[in-house]
Design a protein around this nucleic acid. Structure first.
Length: 282
DNA sequence: TACCAGGCCCCTA
DNA sequence: TAGGGGCATGGT
């Protein structure tokens, strides 16, 4: 994909392998907003303490930001999604989902933010996840002038269980309280050197992190493509597409799907998730 | 008004 | 090791 990094942002000369709506609404991130604008769509996205605004251009987009290099990595611009889609299109099950979510890119998000966000995501709906995480940013994140940074672990150490509950986190309050004490940004960064299987074990030791949440952190934070998060939507998809009416559990579904898609599991999963959740499979 | 949501924890057997 | 009840709360 053709793009150019400049002082005040990034020019994207493509609207096929890069679509903000697909990227943001496919469920991998919660801190974004669409604004009505004259020339179509404008999006704001926050990552850690940084911000970017995406504006429509004639044949692509312009990403306005003070941190172009950061967002070049964040949007995974160096990866050839055309090649990934081409390879995955060999699977019948993915033809329609890829056609539907053609502009998806897997974001490379902050580790601590991804950890906290996906603990909140468990057994929750996306609108409420966004609500809770917005409150977390506004309540405990540094004021960056117009928006709040994602809170640091240092700051969250001073948040009580009942304060987490007051954000609307419900019974996840204790998971958040415990995990903030179990994991810090530096340790998570060190874990980046571990192979996926070992790294997954470390994540599963954290409170509120089960198989599905661990796989999301591996995919959206650590950039591991060899994981396939299985949630309620993927389970529905699996049962429907493969006509499986047995009592197969999510762990076995996960094993089957990672066997099928290998190193591209995470990408396949994201096209399928977006397709299913949008109700486009009817 | 029920049922559901990008599930996890913890107790049984 | 596997299975299942319980769980906060907002969306639909």
């Amino acid at each position: 994909m053709e793009y150019r990094v400049c002082d005040n942002g990034i020019e994207i000369f493509d609207d096929v392998d890069f679509c903000p709506r697909h990227i943001f609404e496919c469920g991998q991130i919660f801190s974004y907003r669409e604004q009505p604008s004259e020339n179509g769509e404008t999006w704001t996205v926050l990552s850690g303490d940084r911000k970017a605004v995406l504006e429509r251009r004639r044949a692509g987009f312009f990403i306005v930001t003070d941190s172009p290099e950061y967002f070049e990595r964040f949007f995974d611009l160096e990866t050839d999604y055309g090649a990934i889609k081409s390879e995955l299109s060999a699977f019948d099950i993915l033809k329609a989902p890829i056609s539907f979510g053609y502009g998806i890119r897997i974001l490379k998000q902050q580790l601590f933010e991804t950890l906290i966000s996906f603990i909140v995501s468990a057994n929750n709906n996306i609108k409420r996840i966004r609500l809770i995480l917005d409150r977390l940013r506004d309540g405990y994140g540094a004021d960056m002038g117009g928006y709040h940074a994602f809170p640091t672990r240092e700051r969250l150490l001073r948040v009580t269980e009942s304060e987490f509950a007051a954000l609307g986190a419900g019974y996840r309050d204790k998971y958040l309280y415990r995990t903030v004490r179990q994991a810090d940004e530096e340790t998570l960064a060190l874990w980046s050197a571990l192979p996926t299987v070992e790294l997954r074990k470390r994540l599963l030791d954290l409170s509120g992190v089960g198989p599905k949440v661990a796989d999301c952190i591996l995919l959206f934070g650590f950039g591991r493509g060899d994981v396939f998060p299985v949630d309620t939507w993927i389970e529905k998809m699996y049962r429907k597409f493969y006509g499986d009416t047995s009592d197969i559990g999510r762990e076995k579904i996960r094993q089957k799907l990672t066997d099928i898609f290998g190193e591209l599991s995470g990408f396949a999963q994201q096209y399928l998730f977006y397709y299913m959740r949008s109700g486009a499979d009817d």
